[in-house]
Protein backbone atom coordinates (compact mmCIF):
# COMPACT_ATOMS: atom_id res chain seq x y z
CA UNK A 1 0.00 0.00 0.00
CA UNK A 2 1.53 3.27 -1.13
CA UNK A 3 1.47 6.64 0.63
CA UNK A 4 -0.67 7.84 -2.26
CA UNK A 5 -3.29 5.14 -1.54
CA UNK A 6 -3.38 6.15 2.11
CA UNK A 7 -3.72 9.83 1.22
CA UNK A 8 -6.58 9.15 -1.19
CA UNK A 9 -8.45 6.94 1.25
CA UNK A 10 -8.09 9.47 4.05
CA UNK A 11 -9.30 12.19 1.70
CA UNK A 12 -12.43 10.19 0.86
CA UNK A 13 -13.39 9.94 4.51
CA UNK A 14 -11.95 13.24 5.62
CA UNK A 15 -15.21 14.68 6.94
CA UNK A 16 -15.85 11.77 9.29
CA UNK A 17 -12.18 11.36 10.16
CA UNK A 18 -11.73 15.05 10.90
CA UNK A 19 -14.80 15.18 13.13
CA UNK A 20 -13.92 12.03 15.04
CA UNK A 21 -10.19 12.62 15.35
CA UNK A 22 -10.74 16.25 16.37
CA UNK A 23 -13.20 15.23 19.10
CA UNK A 24 -10.80 12.60 20.42
CA UNK A 25 -7.92 15.07 20.40
CA UNK A 26 -10.02 17.69 22.20
CA UNK A 27 -10.87 15.08 24.84
CA UNK A 28 -7.17 14.29 25.15
CA UNK A 29 -6.35 18.00 25.42
CA UNK A 30 -8.92 18.42 28.18
CA UNK A 31 -7.37 15.46 29.96
CA UNK A 32 -3.95 17.05 29.66
CA UNK A 33 -5.34 20.29 31.02
CA UNK A 34 -6.71 18.44 34.04
CA UNK A 35 -3.40 16.66 34.38
CA UNK A 36 -1.58 19.97 34.43
CA UNK A 37 -3.90 21.91 36.72
CA UNK A 38 -5.51 19.48 39.16
CA UNK A 39 -2.45 18.62 41.28
CA UNK A 40 -1.75 22.33 41.84
CA UNK A 41 -5.38 23.03 42.74
CA UNK A 42 -5.47 20.12 45.17
CA UNK A 43 -2.25 21.30 46.74
CA UNK A 44 -3.52 24.86 47.08
CA UNK A 45 -6.83 23.68 48.54
CA UNK A 46 -5.02 21.44 50.96
CA UNK A 47 -2.65 24.23 52.04
CA UNK A 48 -5.55 26.63 52.39
CA UNK A 49 -7.28 24.29 54.85
CA UNK A 50 -10.99 23.98 55.55
CA UNK A 51 -11.76 27.67 55.89
CA UNK A 52 -14.81 29.02 54.04
CA UNK A 53 -12.55 31.18 51.87
CA UNK A 54 -10.96 28.01 50.55
CA UNK A 55 -14.25 26.61 49.27
CA UNK A 56 -13.64 28.13 45.84
CA UNK A 57 -10.40 26.21 45.49
CA UNK A 58 -12.08 23.00 46.56
CA UNK A 59 -14.89 23.57 44.08
CA UNK A 60 -12.39 24.24 41.30
CA UNK A 61 -10.59 21.01 42.12
CA UNK A 62 -13.88 19.09 42.15
CA UNK A 63 -14.87 20.57 38.78
CA UNK A 64 -11.48 19.69 37.38
CA UNK A 65 -11.91 16.09 38.57
CA UNK A 66 -15.33 15.92 36.92
CA UNK A 67 -13.89 17.34 33.73
CA UNK A 68 -11.14 14.73 33.70
CA UNK A 69 -13.62 11.89 34.17
CA UNK A 70 -15.95 13.36 31.58
CA UNK A 71 -13.17 13.76 29.00
CA UNK A 72 -12.22 10.09 29.34
CA UNK A 73 -15.84 8.97 29.14
CA UNK A 74 -16.55 11.13 26.08
CA UNK A 75 -13.40 9.94 24.33
CA UNK A 76 -14.45 6.36 24.99
CA UNK A 77 -17.98 6.89 23.68
CA UNK A 78 -16.94 8.97 20.67
CA UNK A 79 -14.31 6.43 19.73
CA UNK A 80 -16.88 3.63 19.57
CA UNK A 81 -19.54 5.73 17.85
CA UNK A 82 -16.94 7.10 15.47
CA UNK A 83 -15.88 3.57 14.63
CA UNK A 84 -19.45 2.75 13.67
CA UNK A 85 -19.89 5.92 11.59
CA UNK A 86 -16.62 5.36 9.74
CA UNK A 87 -17.34 1.68 9.27
CA UNK A 88 -20.75 2.31 7.73
CA UNK A 89 -19.21 4.80 5.30
CA UNK A 90 -16.65 2.29 4.04
CA UNK A 91 -19.13 0.25 2.02
CA UNK A 92 -22.56 1.75 2.73
CA UNK A 93 -21.74 5.20 1.44
CA UNK A 94 -19.90 3.87 -1.61
CA UNK A 95 -22.90 1.79 -2.60
CA UNK A 96 -25.37 4.57 -1.81
CA UNK A 97 -23.52 7.14 -3.89
CA UNK A 98 -22.83 4.73 -6.75
CA UNK A 99 -19.05 4.97 -6.52
CA UNK A 100 -18.81 1.25 -5.81
CA UNK A 101 -20.03 0.57 -9.36
CA UNK A 102 -17.06 2.55 -10.61
CA UNK A 103 -14.47 1.28 -8.13
CA UNK A 104 -15.22 -2.44 -7.98
CA UNK A 105 -14.64 -3.22 -11.68
CA UNK A 106 -11.50 -1.07 -11.60
CA UNK A 107 -10.23 -2.82 -8.48
CA UNK A 108 -11.06 -6.30 -9.80
CA UNK A 109 -10.62 -7.73 -6.29
CA UNK A 110 -13.31 -6.40 -3.99
CA UNK A 111 -11.54 -8.11 -1.09
CA UNK A 112 -8.40 -6.06 -1.65
CA UNK A 113 -10.48 -2.92 -2.15
CA UNK A 114 -12.25 -3.38 1.19
CA UNK A 115 -9.23 -4.49 3.17
CA UNK A 116 -7.13 -1.55 1.99
CA UNK A 117 -9.78 0.91 3.09
CA UNK A 118 -10.55 -0.83 6.35
CA UNK A 119 -6.88 -1.08 7.33
CA UNK A 120 -6.16 2.60 6.65
CA UNK A 121 -9.22 3.80 8.52
CA UNK A 122 -8.63 1.37 11.38
CA UNK A 123 -5.05 2.62 11.73
CA UNK A 124 -6.15 6.27 11.88
CA UNK A 125 -8.92 5.45 14.35
CA UNK A 126 -6.63 3.35 16.53
CA UNK A 127 -4.00 6.09 16.79
CA UNK A 128 -6.63 8.76 17.45
CA UNK A 129 -8.32 6.61 20.12
CA UNK A 130 -5.03 5.68 21.76
CA UNK A 131 -4.09 9.28 22.53
CA UNK A 132 -6.97 10.09 24.95
CA UNK A 133 -6.68 6.56 26.28
CA UNK A 134 -3.04 7.13 27.25
CA UNK A 135 -3.94 10.49 28.75
CA UNK A 136 -6.65 8.74 30.78
CA UNK A 137 -3.95 6.36 32.02
CA UNK A 138 -1.94 9.32 33.28
CA UNK A 139 -5.05 10.82 34.85
CA UNK A 140 -5.50 7.85 37.17
CA UNK A 141 -2.86 9.02 39.60
CA UNK A 142 -4.35 12.52 39.63
CA UNK A 143 -8.05 11.64 39.85
CA UNK A 144 -7.52 8.72 42.21
CA UNK A 145 -4.55 9.58 44.43
CA UNK A 146 -2.79 6.48 45.64
CA UNK A 147 -3.83 4.42 42.59
CA UNK A 148 -1.27 3.27 40.10
CA UNK A 149 -2.50 3.06 36.49
CA UNK A 150 -0.45 -0.05 35.81
CA UNK A 151 -1.67 -2.07 38.80
CA UNK A 152 -5.22 -0.88 39.28
CA UNK A 153 -8.53 -1.47 37.55
CA UNK A 154 -9.83 2.00 38.39
CA UNK A 155 -11.59 3.47 35.30
CA UNK A 156 -10.16 0.57 33.33
CA UNK A 157 -12.90 0.61 30.68
CA UNK A 158 -11.93 4.11 29.52
CA UNK A 159 -8.15 3.82 29.40
CA UNK A 160 -5.33 1.63 28.20
CA UNK A 161 -5.78 -0.53 25.13
CA UNK A 162 -9.33 -1.62 25.85
CA UNK A 163 -11.11 1.43 24.31
CA UNK A 164 -8.96 1.11 21.20
CA UNK A 165 -9.91 -2.55 20.78
CA UNK A 166 -13.57 -1.71 21.32
CA UNK A 167 -13.44 1.11 18.75
CA UNK A 168 -11.95 -1.24 16.17
CA UNK A 169 -14.68 -3.78 16.83
CA UNK A 170 -17.24 -1.00 16.36
CA UNK A 171 -15.57 -0.14 13.06
CA UNK A 172 -15.94 -3.75 11.94
CA UNK A 173 -19.62 -3.79 12.91
CA UNK A 174 -20.14 -0.56 10.98
CA UNK A 175 -18.51 -2.01 7.88
CA UNK A 176 -20.73 -5.10 8.05
CA UNK A 177 -23.93 -3.11 8.57
CA UNK A 178 -23.05 -0.75 5.72
CA UNK A 179 -22.25 -3.69 3.46
CA UNK A 180 -25.52 -5.42 4.30
CA UNK A 181 -27.72 -2.39 3.60
CA UNK A 182 -25.67 -0.41 1.12
CA UNK A 183 -27.20 2.68 2.67
CA UNK A 184 -25.74 4.98 5.30
CA UNK A 185 -28.74 5.71 7.49
CA UNK A 186 -30.07 2.18 7.55
CA UNK A 187 -26.55 0.86 8.02
CA UNK A 188 -26.01 3.19 10.95
CA UNK A 189 -29.20 2.07 12.64
CA UNK A 190 -28.39 -1.60 12.09
CA UNK A 191 -24.84 -1.06 13.34
CA UNK A 192 -26.11 0.54 16.54
CA UNK A 193 -28.47 -2.38 17.12
CA UNK A 194 -25.74 -4.93 16.33
CA UNK A 195 -23.26 -3.09 18.55
CA UNK A 196 -25.70 -2.99 21.46
CA UNK A 197 -26.61 -6.67 21.07
CA UNK A 198 -23.00 -7.66 20.53
CA UNK A 199 -21.93 -5.70 23.57
CA UNK A 200 -24.43 -7.58 25.71
CA UNK A 201 -23.31 -10.93 24.34
CA UNK A 202 -19.65 -10.16 24.74
CA UNK A 203 -20.20 -8.76 28.22
CA UNK A 204 -21.61 -12.16 29.18
CA UNK A 205 -18.60 -13.95 27.71
CA UNK A 206 -16.13 -11.54 29.29
CA UNK A 207 -17.96 -11.82 32.62
CA UNK A 208 -17.59 -15.60 32.59
CA UNK A 209 -13.97 -15.20 31.59
CA UNK A 210 -13.29 -12.84 34.47
CA UNK A 211 -15.04 -15.11 36.95
CA UNK A 212 -12.84 -17.99 35.82
CA UNK A 213 -9.74 -15.90 36.54
CA UNK A 214 -10.99 -14.42 39.80
CA UNK A 215 -9.48 -15.20 43.17
CA UNK A 216 -10.63 -14.48 46.71
CA UNK A 217 -9.56 -11.10 47.96
CA UNK A 218 -9.91 -10.38 51.70
CA UNK A 219 -12.24 -7.51 52.54
CA UNK A 220 -10.83 -6.78 55.94
CA UNK A 221 -8.35 -4.13 54.78
CA UNK A 222 -8.50 -0.59 56.12
CA UNK A 223 -9.71 0.98 52.89
CA UNK A 224 -12.56 -0.93 51.22
CA UNK A 225 -13.05 1.72 48.52
CA UNK A 226 -9.42 1.40 47.50
CA UNK A 227 -9.80 -2.38 47.39
CA UNK A 228 -12.84 -2.09 45.11
CA UNK A 229 -11.10 0.39 42.83
CA UNK A 230 -7.80 -1.42 42.63
CA UNK A 231 -9.16 -4.88 41.94
CA UNK A 232 -11.77 -5.99 39.44
CA UNK A 233 -14.40 -7.40 41.77
CA UNK A 234 -16.81 -9.79 40.09
CA UNK A 235 -18.57 -11.41 43.04
CA UNK A 236 -18.82 -11.62 46.82
CA UNK A 237 -18.49 -14.95 48.61
CA UNK A 238 -18.23 -16.26 52.14
CA UNK A 239 -15.36 -18.26 53.53
CA UNK A 240 -16.27 -20.88 56.15
CA UNK A 241 -14.07 -22.05 58.98
CA UNK A 242 -12.57 -24.75 56.79
CA UNK A 243 -11.50 -22.09 54.28
CA UNK A 244 -14.07 -23.12 51.69
CA UNK A 245 -15.74 -20.37 49.63
CA UNK A 246 -19.51 -20.60 49.47
CA UNK A 247 -22.26 -18.51 47.96
CA UNK A 248 -24.71 -16.62 50.13
CA UNK A 249 -27.40 -19.21 49.37
CA UNK A 250 -25.12 -22.03 50.55
CA UNK A 251 -24.13 -20.04 53.61
CA UNK A 252 -27.76 -19.46 54.55
CA UNK A 253 -28.67 -23.09 53.96
CA UNK A 254 -26.10 -24.16 56.56
CA UNK A 255 -27.13 -21.53 59.08
CA UNK A 256 -28.14 -22.86 62.52
CA UNK A 257 -31.01 -21.19 64.44
CA UNK A 258 -29.79 -18.13 66.27
CA UNK A 259 -26.54 -18.00 64.35
CA UNK A 260 -25.43 -14.63 62.92
CA UNK A 261 -26.15 -14.45 59.19
CA UNK A 262 -23.23 -14.28 56.80
CA UNK A 263 -21.78 -10.80 56.51
CA UNK A 264 -23.05 -9.77 59.93
CA UNK A 265 -20.85 -9.29 63.01
CA UNK A 266 -20.34 -12.60 64.80
CA UNK A 267 -20.92 -14.71 61.71
CA UNK A 268 -18.80 -17.78 61.34
CA UNK A 269 -18.29 -16.77 57.71
CA UNK A 270 -15.69 -14.30 56.59
CA UNK A 271 -16.87 -12.08 53.74
CA UNK A 272 -14.47 -12.10 50.84
CA UNK A 273 -14.50 -10.37 47.47
CA UNK A 274 -13.91 -12.45 44.40
CA UNK A 275 -12.07 -10.63 41.70
CA UNK A 276 -8.99 -10.13 39.64
CA UNK A 277 -6.17 -8.47 41.54
CA UNK A 278 -5.03 -5.08 40.28
CA UNK A 279 -1.59 -6.50 39.59
CA UNK A 280 -3.14 -8.32 36.64
CA UNK A 281 -4.60 -5.14 35.13
CA UNK A 282 -2.24 -4.97 32.18
CA UNK A 283 -2.75 -8.63 31.28
CA UNK A 284 -6.51 -8.23 31.39
CA UNK A 285 -6.39 -4.95 29.46
CA UNK A 286 -4.32 -6.54 26.70
CA UNK A 287 -6.42 -9.69 26.66
CA UNK A 288 -9.75 -7.91 26.42
CA UNK A 289 -8.46 -5.40 23.89
CA UNK A 290 -7.19 -8.30 21.78
CA UNK A 291 -10.57 -9.99 22.11
CA UNK A 292 -12.36 -6.88 20.81
CA UNK A 293 -9.91 -6.59 17.94
CA UNK A 294 -10.56 -10.26 17.16
CA UNK A 295 -14.30 -9.54 17.15
CA UNK A 296 -13.66 -6.68 14.73
CA UNK A 297 -11.58 -8.89 12.46
CA UNK A 298 -14.22 -11.63 12.46
CA UNK A 299 -16.97 -9.14 11.63
CA UNK A 300 -14.79 -7.64 8.92
CA UNK A 301 -14.40 -11.15 7.52
CA UNK A 302 -18.18 -11.34 7.37
CA UNK A 303 -18.20 -8.01 5.55
CA UNK A 304 -15.79 -9.42 2.98
CA UNK A 305 -18.22 -12.23 2.25
CA UNK A 306 -21.09 -9.76 1.89
CA UNK A 307 -19.10 -7.43 -0.37
CA UNK A 308 -17.99 -10.34 -2.55
CA UNK A 309 -21.60 -11.29 -3.22
CA UNK A 310 -23.57 -8.09 -3.11
CA UNK A 311 -24.43 -5.72 -5.94
CA UNK A 312 -22.70 -2.34 -5.96
CA UNK A 313 -26.06 -0.52 -6.04
Amino acid sequence: MSARSVRLIVRQYRFELTAIVATLLVAAAVGLLVLARLPGLVEQASACGSAYECQGLRDDAARMRQLGGLASAIASAIGAFGGIVLGVAVVGREVERGTAALAWPLARSRRRWLLTRAVVIAAVLAVAALIPSLVADRLVAVLHPGSDAGTSFVDFETRGLLPVGRDLAALGVGVLAGALFGRVLQGLLLALVLAAAGNLGIAAVVGAWRVADAVAIPMNGPDQDEMYQRNLIVDTRFRDAAGKLVSIEDAYSHLSPGEAPPGMPGSKYETVAVGIPGDHYQDIDRREAAMWVAVGVIVLGGSLLVVERRRPY
Binding site: R11, Q12, R14, R97, G98, P105, R108
Partner: peptide
Protein backbone atom coordinates in the same frame (compact mmCIF):
# COMPACT_ATOMS: atom_id res chain seq x y z
CA UNK B 1 -12.53 -8.06 -14.75
CA UNK B 2 -8.97 -7.97 -16.04
CA UNK B 3 -10.56 -7.95 -19.50
CA UNK B 4 -13.22 -5.33 -18.75
CA UNK B 5 -13.40 -1.57 -18.72
CA UNK B 6 -16.82 -0.59 -17.46
CA UNK B 7 -18.66 2.72 -17.57
CA UNK B 8 -21.84 2.60 -15.52
CA UNK B 9 -25.08 4.39 -16.23
CA UNK B 10 -24.74 7.93 -14.81
CA UNK B 11 -21.25 7.27 -13.50
CA UNK B 12 -20.70 8.50 -9.96
CA UNK B 13 -17.28 9.85 -9.11
CA UNK B 14 -15.90 10.55 -5.63
CA UNK B 15 -17.07 14.09 -5.14
CA UNK B 16 -14.46 14.74 -2.44
CA UNK B 17 -11.66 13.95 -4.87
Amino acid sequence: LAHIGYVPQTPALYREL
